[in-house]
């Protein structure tokens, strides 16, 4: 489904600020796998996401989605296959456009855009059906501007927009980090529901260790641009935050910053 082969990426090579963001990263995900990615700031999690989505090009290595080589496809070409939700609730929607117009743009993700009206009766019904699953009452506000929604509502809408056309890969980049705890929980629940419903192959970056343990069937830990821990299935289910921290110390020979604010 998703294959990353020997991905390396260095920023500012040859200068004082040189940073090896990714070093020989290999990763294979099967259909329907739900991977959570943890690691401290600067570990390369977001860079990994950006390399998959195409907003960054790797120095070496390649990205393969569904046996299709996509390494050199532009971001907008690749997003035919990829749904994405960003950390910033403002980033995933167009604020001055209505809910139905936003959904119409998301609906066109894997189709060719033409000169037909973006919103029509049939699509409205479809949008309503999908909005109802969020249980936020957004189905009655189809013509409201998205800028008027709260952060939680916008993030729920972003999540729906990224997923309802069933992308081959779903990328979630700390998508609950900017929300208050109760909204974050709501979005986490919706995420679990949607991923389960569509059986999406998902990568989720998070700073919340508990969330990383609760969701998904596989977990990787990154540090200094490398994957240092990779657990799945029953092994993952047996994990706890303490075990994760111990594991990190064991591998790296140093203590991971057990800062509750950062790691939850």
């Amino acid at each position: 489904m998703l294959e990353l082969n020997h991905i390396s990426l260095t920023f500012n090579e040859g200068t004082m600020d040189e940073k090896k963001a990714l070093q020989h990263v290999d990763l294979q995900l099967g259909h329907g796998d739900f991977l959570t990615v943890i690691g401290s700031n600067g570990a390369g999690k977001s860079t990994l996401m950006n390399v998959i989505s195409g907003s960054l090009l790797p120095d070496t290595g390649d990205v393969v989605i569904d046996d299709k080589q996509v390494t050199h496809l532009q971001e907008y070409q690749r997003s035919q296959l990829i749904g994405r939700v960003f950390q910033d609730p403002m980033a995933g929607t167009a604020p001055s456009m209505t809910i139905e117009e936003n959904l119409a743009m998301a609906f066109a993700r894997n189709k060719k855009r033409g000169l037909k009206p973006g919103v029509n009766k049939k699509r409205k019904t479809l949008f309503k059906e999908h909005l109802e699953t969020l249980n936020l009452g957004l189905e009655d506000r189809l013509t409201a501007k998205v800028g008027l929604l709260s952060g939680g509502e916008r993030q729920a809408l972003s999540l729906l927009m990224a997923t309802f056309t069933e992308p081959n890969i779903l990328l979630l980049d700390e998508h609950t980090a900017a929300l208050d705890p109760s909204r974050a929980e709501l979005i986490t629940d919706i995420t679990a529901d949607i991923v389960d419903k569509f059986q999406l192959t998902t990568l989720m970056v998070t700073h919340n260790m508990q969330q990383a343990l609760d969701l998904g069937n596989r977990l990787i830990m990154m540090d200094k641009g490398q994957i240092i821990l990779d657990v799945e299935g029953q092994e993952k289910e047996a994990l706890t935050i303490e075990k994760l921290l111990d594991e990190f110390q064991h591998i790296r020979g140093e203590k991971m910053a057990n800062d509750k604010a950062v790691l939850g």
Binding site: Y76, G92, T93, A94, M97, M105, A108, M161
Partner: peptide, 15 residues
């Protein structure tokens, strides 16, 4: 319109 409103978003929807 989305290009003028939120470029990053519409690019992630293959425009």
């Amino acid at each position: 319109r989305a290009t003028g409103d939120n470029k990053k978003m519409i690019r992630s929807f293959s425009a």
